[in-house]
Simulated assay, not measured.
Amino acid sequence: MPSPAHAWSADLDLLVGAARLAGARALDFFRKGPDVWWKNEGRSPVSAADFAANDILKKELLSARPNYGWLSEETDDDAGRLDCETVFVIDPIDGTRAFIAGKDIWCVSAAVVHHGRPVAGVLFAPSLGEVFTAAADGPALKNGSPIAASEPDAARPTRMAAPEDMAQGIDRHMIGGVHRISHVPSLAYRLAMVADGRIDGTLVKRNAHDWDLAAADLILSRAGGGLVTLDGAPLSYNRPTVSHETLAAAGAARLSGLVDAARHLAGH
């Protein structure tokens, strides 16, 4: 196994450079009516910007690490990744619906996963001018400054970003109740908001994918939080199945309470 202190920080630098290039390319299409297609039986949009950003990421990353596997939302899956100890996990634009609608909350999500867990990750939100980064055993940073998940505060409700039915389903279980904030169209960015303390927690509906989660999972972990199943287990990435069950995310001191409050929502 490579030395994490050296190898993963170098991989993080590689991810950040590639994400910045991909984000800049996506901005060329932003608010300019890019071509849009529909996949997954018409349930999920993909734009010309997604493909252009994906092409840049694939070229930049695999040319530098040709022995790594590749898993991206916008590339046909190759089962060969399962034979790789280390894999790039990529969403060229997380929040495509927001991107198409001209809203600012979307990001490039890029991670390195080693033996099933993320070891380097970046979220780049070019329209907001924000870069979230983390490597294994290093701090979580936002634009170069350390970030931390929030601590419990009995004096106010828990600030949650979650689908309305799920937020209502846990409200009576949380001390002080739940204050639900407005919809956040990018799942990865929503998890970053937990990492930097703007919100206290979130719930994730089932069928989120590796590429939505891997980079944000690491950033949240290094910020003193966690993303887990409703059994309290950490996630494993680069499996044959790349979708996940219902999840919860919060700072470490809140997480077990949130999981307990949300356990009856399993399967949502």
Rank of each mutant, 00 (worst) to 15 (best):
Ser150Leu: 06
Gly116Gln: 09
Ile147Lys: 03
Val122Met: 07
Ala135Glu: 00
Gly102Phe: 10
Thr133Lys: 06
Trp106Glu: 04
Ser145Val: 13
Ala125Thr: 11
Pro118Val: 07
Pro146Ala: 03
Ala125Gln: 12
Glu151Ser: 12
Val122Asp: 03
Val119Trp: 04
Pro139His: 10
Ile100Asp: 04
Thr133Pro: 02
Pro139Asp: 14
Pro139Gly: 09
Cys107Gly: 13
Ala101Val: 07
Arg117Ala: 02
Val112Gln: 00
Pro146Leu: 03
Ala110His: 07
Pro152Phe: 11
Ile147Tyr: 01
Pro118Gln: 06
Leu128Cys: 15
Ala149Val: 00
Val122Tyr: 05
Lys142Cys: 13
Val122Arg: 00
Gly116Ser: 08
Val131Pro: 02
Gly116Leu: 13
Ala149Asp: 00
Ser127His: 13
Pro152Lys: 08
Asp104Pro: 09
Val113Ala: 01
Val122Trp: 02
Pro139Lys: 12
Leu141Met: 10
Ser109His: 01
Ile100Asn: 06
Lys142Met: 15
Val108Met: 10
Val112Trp: 06
Asn143Trp: 02
Gly116Met: 11
Phe132Asn: 09
Leu123Met: 14
Val131Trp: 02
Ala120Trp: 04
Asp137Thr: 07
Ala101Cys: 05
Gly144Phe: 03
Pro126Lys: 08
Ser150Arg: 09
Gly138Asn: 12
Ile100Phe: 04
Asp104Arg: 08
Pro152Val: 07
Arg117Ser: 08
Ala125Ile: 09
Pro126Ile: 13
Ala149Asn: 05
Ala140Ser: 10
Pro152Gly: 10
His115Gln: 15
Lys142Glu: 14
Ala149Cys: 06
Pro118Asn: 02
Asp104Gly: 07
Lys103His: 09
Ile147Val: 13
Gly121Met: 12
Pro146Arg: 03
Ser127Thr: 12
Val112Arg: 01
Ala125Arg: 08
Asp137Cys: 01
Pro146Thr: 05
Val112Ser: 00
Phe132His: 12
Ser150Asn: 04
Ala136Trp: 03
Gly138Glu: 14
Pro118Glu: 05
Ser150Gln: 10
Val108Ala: 05
Leu123Val: 12
His114Leu: 12
Val131Ile: 09
Gly116Phe: 11
Val122Lys: 04
Gly102Lys: 11
Glu130Ile: 15
Asn143Glu: 11
Ala134Ile: 15
Asp137Leu: 11
Pro139Phe: 04
Asp104Thr: 14
Val131Glu: 08
Ala148Pro: 01
His114Arg: 15
Asn143Asp: 13
Ala136Gly: 00
Cys107Leu: 08
Ala134Glu: 12
Pro126Thr: 15
Ser109Trp: 04
Pro146Lys: 06
Val119Ala: 06
Val113Leu: 08
Pro146Gln: 04
Gly144Gln: 05
Ala134Met: 14
Pro146Met: 03
Pro146Asp: 03
Leu141Trp: 01
Phe132Pro: 07
Ile147Phe: 00
Val119Tyr: 02
Thr133Gly: 09
Ala111Asn: 02
Asp137Trp: 09
Val122Pro: 01
Asn143Gln: 07
Val113Gln: 07
Leu123Ser: 09
Trp106His: 13
Asn143Arg: 02
His115Tyr: 13
Arg117His: 10
Ile100Ala: 06
Asp137Glu: 13
Ala110Cys: 08
Asp137Pro: 03
Ala135Tyr: 04
His114Met: 12
Ala120Tyr: 09
Ala110Asp: 03
Ala110Pro: 10
His115Phe: 10
